[in-house]
């Protein structure tokens, strides 16, 4: 098992390396584009352009440029924005990451609990009214766009009913967990619910389908023939096997959300997370920041994938050997 994990991590590092090269090439080796002008921003003076050229080694061969770039990004960590002069990229990401992490982690707990419970309850009650009801709620949650749902939530909690039922809801924004845990949770409660709605719907539906398949498997018939209770068959046998696909789904979703895919929710609720950062950088064509966030996003997607594979090894003994 240790060898398996190690192998998986080594391959994750290799993937990260390839991604960094790819990102570098897209930004610095796209033919016909002057990277210096891009980095320096729209209204850059010739002095700034020259400085950029020197700083990124744009007059030197590609491998050296790649080395310089990575040096700025990861070792010196002094890659700076030229649009908002002086803003260093890495500290910005470091400041934004905990916000995104708080948002996604909390939402993930909610959607896993709700999604798995919904899927299990629906599968256990096939043919009764509760199954189609849960499936309908699921499809409804999937269909509602996060930004719309967020706006509606804001409208209700911040203005329409703010003076009555929702008077306890704080204004949008973020409070760090370290400064005040209660406020942290309170500020994030509605963002969590909004972000979780979509995924809870997807997970409930996927899990129900997996469970229904699993309940038709031969091993479930064997479990019935053993005289086990339906509850035990559902939870210990069918659910245990269905979790394998849920875990892989979760890894991908979680990774991409941490990497910035929670952008809409962050923007709607005014959370200064990675998504928000990318969004602003894109609006300003702030190339160094975009590059930094892309690398950061890729890192979490790759990491999540590696973790999923390791989790797979624990959940499915067949993977360990094969």
């Amino acid at each position: 098992m240790a060898v398996f994990i190690l192998r998986r991590l080594v391959s994750a590092i290799l993937v990260m390396f390839s991604i960094s090269i790819l990102v570098f090439l897209i930004f610095f080796a796209t033919p016909g584009v002057d990277p210096a002008a891009r980095i320096a921003g729209r209204s850059a003076t010739p002095q700034v352009l020259a400085q950029v050229k020197h700083e990124f080694g744009l007059d030197r061969p590609l491998p050296i440029r790649y080395g310089l770039m990575m040096d700025h990004l990861f070792i010196k960590q002094d890659l700076a924005s030229y649009v908002n002069v002086g803003d260093k990229v890495i500290p910005q990401i470091e400041a934004a990451a905990p916000v995104t992490l708080s948002l996604v982690l909390g939402a993930a707990v909610i959607w896993l609990v709700v999604g798995v419970a919904g899927g299990v309850i629906a599968a256990a009650n096939r043919g009764k009214f509760i199954d189609p009801l849960i499936m309908f709620l699921g499809i409804a949650a999937i269909s509602v766009p996060a930004y719309w749902l967020g706006q509606v939530v804001n409208l209700i909690t911040q203005s329409k009913l703010h003076s009555s039922i929702f008077s306890w809801v704080p204004p949008s924004g973020y409070v760090a967990l370290s400064s005040n845990p209660g406020e942290w949770a309170l500020h994030l409660l509605f963002p969590w619910l909004t972000l979780a709605a979509l995924y809870a719907g997807i997970y409930a539906r996927v899990l129900r389908a997996e469970l229904v398949n699993a309940l038709n498997e031969d091993y479930v018939r064997t479990a019935r023939a053993k005289g086990l209770s339906e509850r035990r068959i559902l939870l210990r046998h069918a659910l245990r096997c269905s979790l394998i696909s849920i875990v892989s789904l979760f890894g991908l979703d979680f990774g991409s959300l941490i990497g910035g895919a929670a952008l809409l929710t962050e923007v709607v609720f005014g959370l200064p997370g990675v998504g928000q950062l990318t969004y602003t950088a894109l609006q300003n064509l702030d190339l160094p920041v975009i590059m930094g966030t892309v690398m950061y996003g890729a890192f979490f997607v790759v990491l999540a994938n590696a973790v999923v594979d390791v989790a797979y090894g624990f959940l499915d003994p067949r993977v360990r050997l094969a």
Binding site: Y219, T222, P317, R318
Partner: peptide
């Protein structure tokens, strides 16, 4: 049962 390959829970 008929198919021993699928009759046991794999995990």
């Amino acid at each position: 049962f008929q198919d021993p390959m699928t009759a046991l829970t794999p995990v």
